[in-house]
Structures are given as structure tokens and as C-alpha cells.
């Protein structure tokens, strides 16, 4: 993926850009909002990573200006302001995702990958498939190797979230935010408890484990070993 990183703090920029290059992405860097906007308008990127507080042109203004120019490149805002209304403001400005500093690089990577593969307004297929697991969201039906699996609505939504991002790492924070609207860190391992329930129904008794744990980051569902 070709990514533009707009961040004024040189250390954070080097950390983000360096990490992305290590994972095989092509990275351009800008240290001010105006320089970032110029690059975003000139070049074609697969994703933008924009710090919210920037000299000359704030991150929100950059996103708004880019969207106004018809640039639909997916964008992740980085910020030190993590209150719910700050997130809402960022998303309303046209950002696709929002990451509160300090963040784990793996979290950024996971969200970036999720963004990069998000098909632009693709029609939802009737049935989703991962390996021998098949799920039909409209009928609320899941089968594995032809065998029906009974799931609660919470379990179903969790599985659907994973299956729609099959092959990608999904972090605990992404699950908390997307599934339950939790914008805070719970003290208890509620995500892991839900995943272990889901595993018990989806993976137990089958040869291949579909739901994988990615240590220190989150989970991923994969059809192939």
C-alpha cells in the first residue's frame, strides 16, 4: 500500500513511517498540514494517516479540504484527544477511523489493513465464506462443513465482524468499539471471554482452527493454515 503520513512530531513520524516500511508499505511523509494536503492532492495514495494537531493546517481541516477536492482516500486520524465527541468530530470531518495516542503500532497496522481492504461501497454478498465456514447474515445462519452452528446474536455479530475482515488482524479495541460502542478500556477480559465462547462453538471438534489469536494484538479468522 502507498501511505501518506502527516505528522509534525519527527519521532512519531519516524516510528510510524519506519514501521509501515518494515511491513512492506510505501510511505511518503509530510510534517505540516499544508504540505500534507499538497501531497494528498498530487499523488494517489491508498491511505492517509494524519495527526489531528498540525502546524499551519489542522488535521481536521486537511481531511475536510481533501474530501472537498473529491479525494476519497481512506484516512486514519491520530490524536491525543480521545473523548467520544472528539472522535465523532473527526469522523464527521471525513476521516474513516480514529486512533488515540499513545497507540500500539500493531493497532495502527490492523486498522490500516482493515481500511485498505474495505471495498468502497461494495454490495454485501448474501453469504460469507471462510474455509469450510459459511455464514448468511440475512438469515442469521452459520454452518461449518455443512453442520449448523447455533450462535447468540452477540456471538453472531462478533463472528460476522471477523469473517468480513477474514485474513486481517482485528484488535480488541476495534471489537470493543465496533461491536459494543465501548470507548474505554475495560478492566476485565470481556473480549477474550466472548472469543473463547465463539471458539467453543466454531472451532471445537474440527481439525483446523479458524479463529487465531495474534499475540499482543488481537484476533484474526483465516481459512487456510
Amino acid at each position: 500500500m502507498k501511505v501518506l503520513v502527516v505528522e509534525d512530531d519527527p519521532r512519531t513520524r519516524a516510528f510510524v513511517a519506519g514501521g509501515l516500511r518494515e511491513h512492506g508499505h510505501t510511505v511518503d511523509e509530510a510534517e505540516s498540514g499544508s504540505a500534507g494536503l499538497e501531497l494528498a492532492l498530487l499523488e494517489k495514495y491508498d491511505a492517509l494517516i494524519v495527526d489531528r494537531m498540525l502546524p499551519h493546517c489542522a488535521g481536521l481541516d486537511l481531511v475536510r479540504a481533501a474530501r472537498a477536492q473529491g479525494i476519497e482516500t481512506p484516512c486514519i486520524l491520530l490524536t491525543a484527544m480521545g473523548a467520544v465527541e472528539d472522535r465523532v468530530e473527526g469522523l464527521n470531518a471525513g476521516a474513516d477511523d480514529y486512533l488515540v495516542k499513545p497507540f500500539a503500532f500493531s493497532e495502527l497496522l490492523a486498522r490500516l489493513n482493515a481500511l485498505g481492504r474495505r471495498p468502497p461501497l461494495a454490495p454485501q454478498p448474501d453469504s460469507l465464506r471462510v474455509g469450510d465456514l459459511e455464514m448468511d447474515p440475512a438469515a442469521h445462519r452459520v454452518t461449518r462443513a455443512g453442520k449448523a452452528i447455533e450462535l447468540t446474536s452477540h456471538e453472531f455479530r462478533l463472528l460476522e465482524y471477523l469473517v468480513r475482515r477474514a485474513g486481517q488482524v482485528v484488535t480488541r479495541t476495534m471489537l470493543l468499539e465496533a461491536l459494543w460502542g465501548f470507548h474505554f478500556d475495560p478492566r476485565t477480559n470481556i473480549v477474550d471471554a466472548h472469543i473463547s465462547r465463539l471458539r467453543a462453538k466454531v472451532d471445537r471438534g474440527f481439525d483446523t482452527e479458524l479463529i487465531r489469536t495474534v499475540r499482543g494484538v488481537g484476533y484474526a479468522i483465516r481459512g487456510t493454515p
Binding site: 473523548a83 467520544v84 465527541e85 465523532v88 447468540t152 452477540h154 459494543w180 465501548f182 476485565t188 477480559n189 470481556i190 471471554a193 466472548h194 473463547s196 465462547r197
Partner: peptide, 29 residues
């Protein structure tokens, strides 16, 4: 007193049920 996101009418029973179901696996584990 800074206003957070918008207030909307909410059903207390639904809220309790949602939160409960989110925590049920962890409590039972």
C-alpha cells in the same frame, strides 16, 4: 459539564440487557 455526544431517548431495559450480555461470558468464565 461539557456536552458529550447527543442525548437520545434510551430504554433502560435494553441498556441493562446489552451490558449484561457483554459481561456474561467473562462473569461465567
Amino acid at each position: 459539564g461539557r456536552p458529550a455526544s447527543q442525548s437520545t431517548p434510551l430504554d433502560a431495559g435494553d441498556l441493562i440487557e446489552t451490558v449484561g450480555e457483554i459481561y456474561r461470558p467473562a462473569i461465567e468464565d
